[in-house]
Design a protein around this nucleic acid. Structure first.
Lengths: 332, 332
DNA sequence: TTGTAAGCGTTATCAC
DNA sequence: GTGATAACGCTTACAA
């Protein structure tokens, strides 16, 4: 800027005004300055700007696993919107590791990020606003904040999705549905669980943990055995709602090995609508989340908070989901 | 820092020394200062540090599409290694848009990033080092740099992978192999193309663009027609090497509709080894890139450049790939 | 409409 | 060992 000022024969202050279009300069100087800027290929120094303005024009995103397609889609779309608004995004892959999450939060605070978007995660999110510093606005996607009044919570309607999936199974003739899920569960999979249970209740099917739930681990081989035992112990089972598509897809393979036909013997519906659903055999029915809406809502909510509009604080946005029917749940 | 200094009764300079472990302070002061820091929950201000040191402790990554699993894997691993080394990563999703790429580069320069990692992309990468500023070190993954002497190029051995895939098809009885690829091609898909051609040559199979190549577009329906026409025009075709798995997986579905059996009538091998390969029917053989090695090599190379070690500049690292045989290419 | 200068939170040089 | 202090590049209040 000093160079620009000298080359165009004005003061540094004027250069700054022109750069930020703050008014208080003549058309003539403006052109002079912009010309020099053009020629020199000047690039603003954001550190200095940040230091001075206490605003970094960057937003942090905390995501458990960027290789998960659902997350990747949301992140991609958030990033695009933010980019258009002049913010850059710092994507932090926490690898579902609480320690790493803490470390990242600390780095983000140090970088004076203007806002934070939290995507999913094992337990409720807590932001320990260190010291009396300016509080950093944040919004949560698919993960409940501990401090609900301070932030905005955006989530797909997991309950509704699970409910619809289960009712669809029943409508297609399933008499003994079961849910397959992981033991340690996020707020969203808890919602899915209760959607499943309520659908049974509504359809007068008794629910018991023993008969209607199967808990998977993370190891594939182990899960294969768990499934085998489950269908042995509960041979009536004729429909499975799997808490996500990865589980559903694995089960399709497992059942093939057990010579159990999908959908004739057992119907399956997953959750997330990952691309693989279209390539499996049979193709996997699933619940599709509206990643675009989620991303848009998250960004607009966050921007509001950043701009000091507090009227949405404490709000919860539940976004609708959509059942995508494919072969795995079809009536024969 | 000022507060810390006052609270612990030392000068700001001393606090800085303790924080950075620069020596020139007594054990006693150290403890005193660290205690206060602990209590106050002090967080360093990176903007100030960056401004002063002209070093930002952050690295930019340019990636065409974060929802592509191969890219996501590489990015994830790069991020993890960098995090352990105290760098934070700014992931820039260029969406294969040259304009956006330019815009991002400009932002990254403004943020004084210490280094840059470029992943893939349509054409050779050019970094127009603006003005006489400090030059930013960068390394390229799967994308050739224009200015080869300035940087380090890391790539899977796409040529070898394509060569092996093609030879494997031939070894399994394929007499009339064809390659399926996109018209506008990156440096890596060019390599794959020439690996394919050379494998034909070595096995005394004549190559012609007309008989042995099929160019796909981006539209799925269109591609289905293209494939249909191709197998009509060239009914001898009994093996396809698809330049990536997404094409291969689509073709499996298309051929099913055409009542052409895979692998009996036509054998297929893809490239990238995406997870879906294991779920399709038949499962898709593929070439697996070693994302871990790629990530490690990229980071270590970049760090060397950042540290001013120039002896590796201009080097090219070709990393081995691995054929994963599944049902789609098996001999019956 | 323009210029001067203080100050943002660090690090690094120098003096003690 | 420790402390003053200049400087990094920018914005902005105030003066002109």
């Amino acid at each position: 800027m000093k160079d620009i000022a000298e080359l165009s024969g004005v003061s540094i202050a004027t250069v700054s005004r022109v750069l930020n279009n703050n008014g208080r300069f003549s058309e003539e100087t403006k052109e002079k300055v912009l010309k020099v800027i053009e020629e020199t290929g000047y690039q603003i120094n954001y550190s200095a700007k940040t230091l001075r303005m206490n605003k970094s024009f960057s937003i942090g995103i905390l995501v458990p696993d960027i290789t998960n397609l659902f997350f990747a889609n949301v992140v991609e779309q958030i990033e695009e919107i933010l980019f258009d608004k002049g913010y850059s995004t710092i994507i932090c892959n926490t690898a579902r590791d609480a320690k790493k999450e803490k470390a990242y939060l600390s780095v983000l605070v140090s970088k004076l990020i203007d806002g934070l978007i939290i995507i999913s995660g094992a337990d409720d999110f807590e932001f320990e606003h260190q010291s009396a510093k300016k509080e950093i606005p944040y919004v949560c996607i698919d993960r409940e904040p501990k401090d609900k009044d301070r932030t905005i919570f955006i989530s797909s309607n997991h309950y509704q999705g699970a409910f619809e999936a289960t009712e669809n199974l029943i409508a297609n003739g399933v008499k003994h549905p079961a849910i397959v899920l992981h033991k340690k569960s996020s707020s969203s999979s808890k919602e899915r669980f209760s959607g499943f249970k309520d659908a049974l209740k509504k359809n007068n099917i008794d629910f018991s943990n023993e008969e209607n739930t199967l808990f998977f681990h993370t190891n594939k081989q182990e899960n294969k055995t768990l499934l085998k035992n489950f269908v042995n112990d509960h041979p009536d089972t004729d429909g499975l709602f799997t808490v996500n598509d990865n589980i559903g897809l694995d089960i399709i393979l497992f059942l093939k090995e057990l010579n159990i036909d999908v959908p004739k013997d057992i119907k399956i519906i997953g959750f997330d609508n990952v691309p693989t659903c279209e390539y499996s055999n049979p193709t996997l029915s699933s619940i599709k989340q509206d990643t675009e809406k989620i991303a848009k809502k998250a960004v607009s909510s966050l921007i509001k908070l950043i701009d000091g509009q507090t009227e949405d604080k404490g709000k919860i946005y539940l976004l609708p989901v959509q059942l995508i029917e494919r072969e795995s749940s079809k009536l024969q």
